[in-house]
Amino acid sequence: MPFYVSPEQQMKDKADYARKGIARGRSVVVLQFADGILFVADNPSRALHKISEIYDRIAFAAVGKYNEFENLRLGGVRYADVNGYQYDRRDVTARGLANVYAQSLGTIFTETNKPYEVELVVAEVGEDADTDQIYRLTFDGSVADEHGYVAMGGQAEAVAQALKDRFVEGAPLAEALRTAVGALEAQDSDRRLEAKSLEVAVLDRHREHRLFKRLPAARIQELLDAGQGAQGV
């Protein structure tokens, strides 16, 4: 006969478990810049992505357990493609996708013993910075509508604090990337991040059709160097 565990205690245990799992990994930051939305992950793997394209204007970033967020990503791609095929490409929105993810995560959190150890960002680039949408979803299905920047995973608080200090609205890509990398380096006091240990992608509102683009390591290096030159370091 199992011991009685109060619902409060049960939820708290699950939440602690999920938080611990998420904090073990490395961080991801998402921030707005002059031409759209920038995604930067401290991720040396070139095969296992934390940042991905979902649809024309929508991208996905995640931290936590790979198989769990990959599962959500694949489901999201199907959701977007089915809706875009049945209706129109314009009818696929980040808001719709965030709702579906929130419901899925919420159900998993309350109905199963093991919650997902993931945190997600679903972002949609608009015509201008005011119409950009960034939704942050946590393991229990809560959704927050963010503006400017988001940091998640690993030492998320330290990274968010660094972003808060450095973030400038409407910064050009090179500057925004340096801000993001600087913030990610705040995870540890001696952390230095090089181009090849970063996963970087943008949703660029000036591109055509599919706005998501991954930046290759050479381009990341070029942008980081350009940023340094401008600051005269």
Partner: peptide, 15 residues
């Protein structure tokens, strides 16, 4: 609709 009408979540098939 491409999600479960009652719960709004992704049906199992999607994942």
């Amino acid at each position: 609709a491409s999600h479960d009408a009652h719960t709004g979540r992704l049906p199992g098939l999607f994942t």
